[in-house]
Design a protein around this nucleic acid. Structure first.
Length: 473
DNA sequence: GCATGATCATGC
DNA sequence: GCATGATCATGC
């Protein structure tokens, strides 16, 4: 695994960090990664390992932020479980999460602080924006097995910042008054000055405006404030989960009409021409080359791949490209996702994955047709392949509950009996059949019998697809 | 020439 | 690392 992020891009750093969500370092094989630096092990090992082994930079206590190119400081912070309150309005309480500790930002240099004003203070300069990585602390669990629960960039709101500013001023006043030794965490609201050091006595140091030694202290977010941060991030996380993608429809036109309009402009054009019109740059290498070109077209015409739009998610539309032979029969049958052998045997038809898939799903068929006969597509020139038709399709309920049901029940029964070699074939004359689909013949999936079998999936027969295309006027 | 098994680049 | 969206290869 590489340190696969762009240190000049906050979102890239956050995205990379979020790969650890609900995982431990061990699960990503990070802990066993060779240490990039030969630092002696020190306290706070999880944070250090994240910095050195996961992000690949040397642990420092330098003045600049950890990701100083973008002004983001990394903080790896423990959570603890509290008793869940299922009816709470507070997501944190419902999940039973709480901050185990304050978040320590940076050691206070009393002499430096003595000369600072809020507007260019060093603590917010370094720590205004944090990359927070909260993990669930568990006693007796090795650090490399601890699970990260919340990972996000975060900075205080403008409102909070006002209070943090006032807290900062409270602390600074004491230093300026020669009362650094009297500072207490209780003085302030969100931003605290906590003691830092093995014992307060040992850590005592000089202060600028008095001869009395003061305990070493660090700026920190108080535990109660960290609980609020956690709630804030969990809410945002929920929002992310349910956030709708951007919408393709606008006030003038519905999304399907927009799609037809774009594709109608290139209907009867060859792939070659389409690639030129849209200035697409793509190697003809992948087996789903035509599909990738279509995705490229949509990125240019609509700004994104179609399945990223709100309407495609809401209406559950799947895009399929089809290549017809000159006689109008698709060259290939149409494959779907793998069968989960263990899941399908516990399903009932009416609520089964496959019935759901076809009842609640539409397809956007983008149909090409070859001018000449061919054995394999790669023999064809791109100018032999013409865009033929674009249509939305969904499976008629009668087909679903008759032929498709037959295929499903036969498959399910055979899996239950442990017979993986006699599924329905295309020659059985139903609308679909079962066929392998994997990396290769050794790509196996677990069965309810505990054995492993080749991965297979449902395929819609090419003849059936032809009928469905022609049914459409 | 079709049916079926095998395979592959790509994107997340 | 693996599923996906497809096409390729082969045997009858």
């Amino acid at each position: 695994m590489d340190y696969n992020y762009d240190k000049n891009n906050k979102e890239s750093i956050e995205q990379y960090a979020r790969k650890l969500l609900n995982k431990s370092l061990n699960e990503l094989n990070i802990y066993n990664r060779e240490y990039r630096f030969n630092n002696k092990k020190s306290k706070g090992r999880l944070g250090q390992t994240v910095e050195e082994s996961y992000f690949g930079y040397r642990v420092n206590s330098k003045q600049e932020a950890d990701f100083d190119e973008v002004g983001v400081e990394l903080k790896v912070c423990p959570l603890k479980n509290i008793k869940k309150k299922p009816n709470s309005n507070n997501i944190r309480e419902r999940l039973g999460y709480s901050a185990k500790e304050r978040v320590v930002l940076s050691i206070i240099d009393y002499f430096k602080l003595n000369n600072e004003v809020w507007d260019n203070n060093s603590i917010m300069d370094k720590c205004e924006e944090l990359l927070l990585m909260f993990y669930m602390n568990k006693k007796d669990v090795p650090t490399e097995d601890l699970i990260f629960k919340i990972i996000s960039l975060w900075k205080p709101s403008q409102q909070d910042l006002k209070i943090i500013e006032s807290d900062w001023n409270t602390i600074v006043s004491k230093v300026k008054d020669g009362k650094a030794h009297e500072i207490s965490e209780g003085d302030t609201m969100y931003l605290g000055a906590c003691t830092k050091g093995s014992t307060a006595e040992k850590s005592k140091r000089l202060q600028p405006n008095s001869n009395i030694l003061a305990p070493q202290r660090a700026f920190s977010y108080k535990r109660s404030y960290v609980d609020y941060i956690i709630e804030d991030l969990l809410r945002k996380e929920q929002y992310k989960k349910f956030k709708l993608a951007k919408s393709l429809s606008d006030e003038y036109m519905l999304f399907d009409q927009k799609i037809y309009n774009i594709f109608n402009e290139i209907v009867n054009k060859s792939l070659d021409e389409i690639i030129k019109v849209y200035s697409i740059n793509r190697q003809r290498k992948a087996k789903n080359f035509i599909r990738l070109v279509i995705d490229d077209v949509c990125k240019i015409a609509f700004g994104d791949k179609l399945d990223n739009f709100e309407e495609f998610k809401k209406a559950n539309i799947e895009i399929k490209t089809i290549l017809l032979k000159p006689n109008g029969i698709p060259k290939e049958s149409m494959s779907f996702e793998q069968i989960d052998y263990c899941e399908i045997v516990n399903e009932e038809w009416n609520t089964s994955t496959i019935r759901n898939k076809f009842e609640n799903k539409k397809h956007l068929w983008i149909i090409f047709k070859s001018k000449i006969n061919f054995k394999k597509q790669s023999e064809l020139g791109l100018d032999d392949i013409l865009l033929n038709k674009v249509m939305l399709w969904n499976m008629p309920i009668a087909d679903l509950d008759n032929s498709m049901y037959k295929v499903w029940i036969d498959t399910t029964n055979k899996i239950k009996q442990g017979d993986y070699n006699n599924f329905i074939k295309i020659s059985n004359g139903e609308i679909a059949h079962i066929r392998p689909k994997g990396k290769d013949a050794n790509d196996l999936a677990l069965t309810p019998q505990g054995t492993k079998e080749r991965k297979k999936c449902f395929w819609l027969n090419s003849k059936y697809i032809k009928e469905q295309i022609e049914k459409e006027i």
